[in-house]
Nucleic acid binder design. Structure first.
Lengths: 347, 347
DNA sequence: TGCAAAATTTAAAACGTTTGCAATTCGGCA
DNA sequence: TGCCGAATTGCAAACGTTTTAAATTTTGCA
């Protein structure tokens, strides 16, 4: 109720004890008499005492925070990734009394600089790194620095060990291929992005591996690439693929947003999904359930992954053990209505 | 590059200066010789010096953080609200060198307790409060405590002054009514929630006011209410409204999620939107663009609002002036294909 | 050259907590 | 009653920074 915060000194004075004793009593040290501990706990509760984070951090070297550098985003979010991710992290952290710090990278500012600032200022005991790039200076920095972190995603080469959790996109894309192949499709399209993120390789490689496994030389794969945030270019790339006389009968998109574009453009081109064209996405964004005829996609359960990432990170922070934690989550197929048998005839 | 952080003491020692001088030089105090300031800045840059947040906070009493208590959410997020809101806050904060702290309320934990903890621990210089309830103990606490905050949303009664930013839902719902009335609709339905949030009143009152303004006694309004997170109950409530022989010809939903349910159930009941039924939502979630035939709704530009909230809060923190800041943002109509003329005949 | 004023730098306290070590109190036994 | 060890409590340092007040150096002018 008071306008000022209660401090340990005040609490100690009101109890006629030393600061040391009160501090220890609240921490539950057994060397403090049980009766004293109870008396202190009672007084602290009544006074609404909450220890000052800055002071505690300063002396203990632990802030109780985990950092996340906010991905710089385009003008419009089209999915709930960030919300789910942050919610999941929060859920995982709160179980251990930790909280989340969100550091935003300003427009002109490199994400690495923000990360460095978070780390060097001692704001956080560990960080989560998302959207892993092919050459990721953030991971290199954190490793050099010996700072606890967990990556959401992976590097392509495993030059060094680190903690990561990734969605098994390779497996999903293989599964998508197998399903489509069994439905008679032989001519495939992949819509991907030009940004150097590792997940595009992992997923594309998973697709290629599944094709190779099948060993059918009649299988063909076309690839369309466009910048992630350039909607115009994306539409162009999709249309180039759709309007060729020998267009694919099945298109796999790197993620739902691209798949939705494919469905929109297919409709505009007079194609009926899935009769003329099968489309499969990845992420299971909310809109994928609403976009007619309902997009078949994979659910990566972001929130759940984030929760596990939080757990991993807290483990890493607690015991700076050498053994790197890794986790590969298999996404689940969400079969809706955008895939079907390959069209029988083709000119 | 070093594994340990650089401290002010080390920096001072390496420069042959006192800690005081280095601190002041970095802060840009004019009393320090220009040449010294430059020399210090150079050395700090090279050493990668970043001041320790805990120490700075402890002595200055300012953490440079703004707090947000994460709304406890149901198992599945259906929109990107949180992501947009957090992004907007981050954008607003980073311009002033502030960052965001996200505190999650555990399942069984009251949001107020988490808020109290954030405030009393000195983690944050101010907080943002969302989802204002009819009787909101958080606002009461913050006011009693004299702690800087900005509310996203408003209380119904203006017993005391506080800083808020709200979307003008009342105006939007009035606008929706006017548009539908002019299209010939006379029988309206409102789908709302049972949770005691103030925005449902503000929007419903806006609708009622518009009806009253029109002064047409033939206008009729039915209201369906269901718990926010109980999908089953919501569907039931919607169907009760839809399956009455004299169902409304136009339904306004408190927000898009409800409107999407209305459209789904209407389709299931064999009704064609907008021929048989007009539907209007609020929020402009991504799915509303994809749900056939395209939901007419209002865009509240969450991200923009959040950015302004951040600005307001930083102002409040900087100058604890008495004048309360308030801002009422008018949402823009996003006309899509879910509204149209009232059906001509009715049994 | 000397002295006051201006310019520049520094010592030390403070912020609120944790913790190593020392001091005090207590109970039991001779 | 006196003493020892165990139980309990307290002193003081430390964490890294900002800031007040004071000390030191430099400059300008007689």
């Amino acid at each position: 109720m008071p306008a000022r915060v209660t401090t340990l000194k005040e609490l100690a004075a009101s109890l006629g004890l030393s600061i040391t004793t009160v501090s220890r009593a609240l921490a539950g040290h057994r060397q403090i008499a049980l009766k004293t501990r109870e008396r202190v706990a009672q007084a602290a509760r009544q006074a609404g005492y909450v220890p000052n984070t800055a002071a505690r951090t300063l002396v203990s070297g632990r802030s109780g925070f985990v950092g996340l550098v906010l991905p710089i985003r385009g003008p419009n979010l089209v999915d709930s990734f960030l919300g789910e991710f942050v919610t999941g992290l929060g859920e995982g952290l709160v179980a251990h009394g930790a909280d989340l710090i969100l550091a935003t990278a300003a427009q002109d500012q490199a994400e690495l600089a923000v990360l460095r600032h978070v780390v060097e200022s001692g704001r956080a005991d560990g960080v989560v790194v998302t959207r892993i790039a092919e050459v990721d200076e953030r991971l290199a920095y954190l490793r050099r620095r010996g700072f606890p972190f967990v990556a959401h995603g992976r590097l392509l080469d495993n030059d060094f060990d680190y903690n990561w959790l990734d969605t098994d996109g390779a497996h999903a894309f293989g599964e998508a291929f197998d399903m489509l192949y069994d439905l008679g499709h032989r001519h495939f399209g992949l819509v991907t992005i030009s940004e150097p993120m590792t997940f595009r390789h992992l997923r594309q490689d998973g697709l290629a591996a599944a094709i190779a496994r099948r060993g059918d030389p009649s299988v063909r794969l076309d690839v369309a690439t466009a910048p992630r945030f350039d909607r115009g270019a994306r539409i162009q790339a999709v249309n180039r693929m759709l309007q060729r006389p020998d267009r694919p009968t099945a298109i796999v998109a790197l993620f739902d947003e691209l798949a939705l574009t494919v469905m929109e453009e297919a409709a505009r081109a007079g194609l009926t999904v899935p009769r003329d064209l099968s489309v499969i996405g990845f992420d299971n964004v909310v809109a994928s359930a609403y976009a007619p005829p309902g997009l078949t996609t994979f659910d990566a359960s972001i929130r759940q992954c984030a929760r596990e990432i939080a757990d991993m990170l807290l483990t890493v922070i607690a015991e700076k053990s050498a053994a790197p934690l890794t986790s590969l989550i298999r996404p689940t197929l969400v079969p809706r209505a955008s895939h079907g048998p390959a069209p029988l005839t083709r000119s």
